[in-house]
Each structure stands twice: as C-alpha cells, then as structure tokens.
Simulated scan of single mutants.
Amino acid sequence: MRRSKIQGRGAFAILPIRKGKKVDEYWGQPITHEEADRRYDDSEGRHHTFLFVLDDDTVLDARFGGNDARFINHSCDPNCETVIEDGHIWIKAIKAIKPETELVYDYRFEWQDEYEPEDVRYYACRCGAKKCRGTILRIPVYLRPAIKQWLAGNDVPLPKKPKKGAKKAVKKAAKKAVR
C-alpha cells in the first residue's frame, strides 16, 4: 500500500503476477443496501466509501473488517477484474502484472436513469488511462456522446432509450437502402 497517482492510497504488486491469478479477496462487514444508503448519503457531498455489492441483498462495507483489497483503485484500462464466486469477491489479474505496478479494476458503477449532469461529474474518473471514459459509471452505449458532453460541462439533453431491436432494424434498413 502506498500513495497512488489515481486517488489516495493504492495497492501495488511487489512480485510478478501472472494472468488469471487470484490477487486478493475483498472483505468487509455484510450489510443491506438500505444500511449502505444510510451510512453513506450522497446528498451530503463527496465521501469515500469501501462498499462493494455482493448480491441483491448484501453489500460489503470494507470500512469495517476490510482488508487491503479496499485500496485497489478504479481504472478504465484495468489489469484486474472482480469475480463473485460462492459469496466471495475475488480480485483476479486479467493480464500479467509487473512488480511496482498499481493494481486496478474497472468499478463499473451501474447507470441510473435519473442521473443528471452533476451526478455524472460527481463520479468523474481520475485514472489517467489513454482509454479513460471520464467516469467510473458504466455508461450505456447510446448515452456515451451525451455523457461526454456532460463531462465537458455542456448539459445537453439525453437521447431517448432505443427500443429493443432498434439496432437490428436500423442495420436492416441500411442494408435495404444500399441495394
């Protein structure tokens, strides 16, 4: 553990780590989603949490009973991923990692339809990766151009959600038009 260029403290490899190796397990106090919302109210400004959603009923709060895995930062170009198996959250290397390299995974916070520009900017990304999407949120593909504008400070309206099968219909119409 040491100072990270991404945010606060980070976890760094001290030995080479091979692709596919389990690096760590994420520990924390099991709580309900409601308790997580009570403990960390987003309306009171930016705060640091160590929450990880285990399943529909349980969130692990690593502020209580957590281990070093809580210091693994987010990156849009990760070298690790999280895998949930039998009630355990594992951090697993998705590529070979050299010593002194910061361990990072993509947090992929779920998009919520009620998000507004300030919400997206609240979850701004600081990973510095060439492929950085600007936010730790997982943005639906159809929203990416508008969200890019929001992150630039332009509060453009979001497009309507495409109907299921709309992509196929557009491709089919495009093929017909070419004939």
Rank of each mutant, 00 (worst) to 15 (best):
T32Q: 09
D55Q: 05
Y26C: 07
T49V: 05
E25I: 12
D24N: 10
L54E: 15
R46P: 06
A36N: 08
A36M: 11
Y40G: 02
G28Q: 06
D56K: 08
Y26E: 04
K19I: 07
E35A: 12
R38N: 02
T32L: 07
T49S: 07
Q29D: 03
D41L: 00
E34P: 05
I14T: 14
I31E: 07
D57Q: 12
L15W: 02
E44T: 14
I17H: 02
D41F: 06
A36D: 04
T49C: 08
E35S: 12
H48L: 07
K22I: 07
D42C: 04
E25A: 11
W27E: 15
Y26M: 12
A36P: 04
F50K: 13
L15S: 13
V23S: 14
A13E: 07
K22V: 08
D24C: 01
Y40T: 02
R18F: 02
D57K: 12
D57T: 00
D24S: 09
L60H: 01
G20H: 03
R38T: 04
Y26R: 15
H47R: 14
R39P: 04
L54Q: 08
V53W: 04
F52I: 01
K21I: 11
L54P: 09
I14S: 14
D41V: 01
P16V: 00
H48P: 10
F12E: 03
G45E: 06
W27P: 13
Y26D: 04
P30D: 01
T49I: 05
D56E: 09
E34G: 15
D42F: 13
V23N: 13
E44L: 04
E44N: 11
D57P: 00
D24M: 07
Q29T: 06
A36T: 05
Y26K: 14
I31L: 03
L54G: 13
H33F: 06
I17Q: 06
L51M: 06
R39G: 03
R46C: 02
K21W: 10
H48I: 12
I17L: 10
P16D: 09
D24E: 15
K22R: 08
E35P: 10
H48V: 12
F50N: 14
L54A: 13
D37N: 11
P16A: 09
I14G: 14
L60Q: 04
R46D: 07
K22F: 00
D41C: 02
P16K: 10
I17V: 13
E34T: 03
E25V: 12
E44A: 14
G20Y: 05
G45D: 09
F52D: 00
G45S: 09
A13Q: 04
K19D: 08
H33D: 02
D56R: 05
T49L: 02
Q29S: 08
E35Y: 00
W27I: 11
R39T: 03
D41A: 02
Y26I: 15
R18C: 03
S43I: 04
E35T: 15
F12V: 01
K21L: 11
I17G: 01
R38H: 09
D41E: 11
Y40H: 09
A36F: 04
A13F: 02
P30I: 15
F52A: 01
T49D: 05
P30A: 04
